[in-house]
Amino acid sequence: MHGTPPVLSRRTVWLGALAGACAVALSGCGFVLRGAPKFAFESLRFQGSEVTPVARELRRALESAGLRVFASGTPASPEGDTGQVLLTVLVDQREKTVVGQTAAGQVREMQLRTRFTFRLATVAGKSLLDDTELLLERDISFTETAVLAKEAEEALLFRDMQSDIVQQIMRRLAAVQVL
């Protein structure tokens, strides 16, 4: 018995063949995980609203991607760099509206919105991205008996929308190929 090779069942052979076929199919489809963004510029100057939560998170994301980010009030660096491109934040606001009420007028559902509008241009004034508005909406139910929990849920949804908007902006900035 020690000298004979083990006999593979049909099921084992079938599963092995299926796994091999899947590996071949995935390797040939061009699927690649999204990596860190690569930008056509090395430095950026913020203009407009810079102290809002979305703008602060965007600044951190840009700096962690290797860009030098200057605030609008920051003087030029010792090398004379004031930023290759200007990111102008036109609108950065959060909204909360009532969308559902009971017959007695009690709030049952609200809609949360985060709106961010920006443009990107070179220092010389050439437009790279025209005014771009990003609008995200989330619906949230409301109960008077769980006000604190709903406030925490609302804050979590706003943070989630903020992160989503920052990622969308990063992808749009990385799509700029030529200054």
Rank of each mutant, 00 (worst) to 15 (best):
V85T: 00
L67H: 12
L87S: 00
F116Y: 06
E50Q: 14
E50N: 12
E137K: 13
T114S: 03
L87K: 04
A149M: 09
R108Y: 02
F158M: 15
M170H: 10
F46D: 07
R113V: 04
C29F: 04
A149P: 06
A23W: 09
V98M: 00
S77H: 02
G20D: 07
A17V: 10
Q162S: 15
R94P: 01
E42Y: 07
S141R: 02
A104N: 11
G48Y: 08
A40P: 10
D164Q: 15
V69R: 03
E79T: 03
S77R: 05
M110K: 00
P6R: 10
L157F: 11
L120C: 03
F41T: 06
A17D: 02
S72F: 05
V85Y: 01
L33C: 02
D92G: 00
A76M: 01
A175W: 11
V51A: 15
E95N: 11
G3K: 07
P75R: 13
L120M: 03
F70M: 04
M1S: 12
H2T: 06
L136N: 02
D164L: 14
L8M: 12
E144P: 06
F118E: 07
E137A: 09
S127C: 05
R108W: 10
T145F: 13
A23Y: 11
A25M: 13
S127Y: 01
Q47M: 13
C29T: 07
S9L: 10
D92T: 00
T97E: 09
L157V: 13
V51Y: 14
V107A: 02
A152P: 14
Q167R: 15
G83R: 02
A104P: 01
E57N: 12
A21D: 08
R172I: 10
R94H: 13
V91N: 08
